[in-house]
């Protein structure tokens, strides 16, 4: 369960309260500048909050630095170029993602191949290829696999289809749905993609005036 209590961040998030039950998936929408990315960065620990607290599965993680939170929170960024390292190979990117787990079986090449095979993009046979050679859609799919290949309690997705064309966007959305169905982990999706909002079946909320409201 994720609980955000009385969160204040500058003038962007003002007395924000949010509860997401364990295994629940919530979609947060909002206009540009509403503070969606600030909310994402606050939960992942990249931005420090002015006041309030963040509780994840009963543990207060408010004072945990970003690199400690990463062991509980898996994030996928809006720009696939920011969410992967183009100059490194697919395998090196996966190794980096596996820093967040102590489970040795989740650090093996076989495990990575198995995870990548779900994408049906033949990436499992291109492990030594540099990520910069992949398309935007492939990079975002890889980013998603990297986020979910390690242990995590909360999956954070920030506008992950925003920089993709409709076809790739559709592929990524289906992949997200599949992961959510299979993994049953707490998930917070931030998006203003109307296609995605229209097809989303879970709980939807809206970020307005620095607060989260029922949509």
């Amino acid at each position: 369960m994720l609980k955000l209590n009385n969160i204040f961040v500058g003038n962007i998030l003002r007395n924000l309260n949010l509860v997401i039950d364990r295994g629940e998936c919530v979609l947060i929408t909002g206009e540009n500048g509403a503070g969606k990315t600030t909310l994402f960065n606050t939960i992942s620990g990249i931005i420090k909050l002015d006041s309030g607290n963040i509780i994840l599965n009963g543990q207060d993680i408010t004072n945990f630095p970003y690199y400690k939170r990463a062991y509980w929170i898996s994030s996928v960024l809006q720009d696939p170029k920011a969410g992967t390292i183009g100059e490194m190979t697919i395998l090196e990117n996966l190794h980096l993602a596996s820093i967040r787990t102590n489970d040795k079986s989740k650090k093996s090449i076989d495990f990575f191949r198995e995870k990548l095979s779900v994408l049906e993009m033949n990436l499992e046979n291109r492990l030594e290829e540099k990520v910069k050679n992949l398309s935007g859609g492939q990079r975002q799919a890889l980013s998603l696999i990297m986020a979910t290949s390690a242990d995590y309690e909360l999956l954070l997705l920030d506008e992950i289809t925003a920089s993709l064309d409709p076809k790739n966007s559709d592929t990524i959305m289906k992949l997200v749905e599949k992961i959510i169905c299979e993994e049953r982990k707490t998930c917070l999706i931030i998006s203003h993609d109307t296609n995605y909002i229209g097809s989303f079946k879970g709980n939807m909320m809206r970020l307005n005036n620095g607060k989260v409201e029922k949509s």
């Binding site: 690199y67 062991y71 920011a82 390292i85 993602a97 820093i99």
Partner: peptide, 11 residues
Amino acid sequence: YNKQFAAISGI
């Protein structure tokens, strides 16, 4: 290469 990515990767 990418500090933002490093941050979310627990580095």
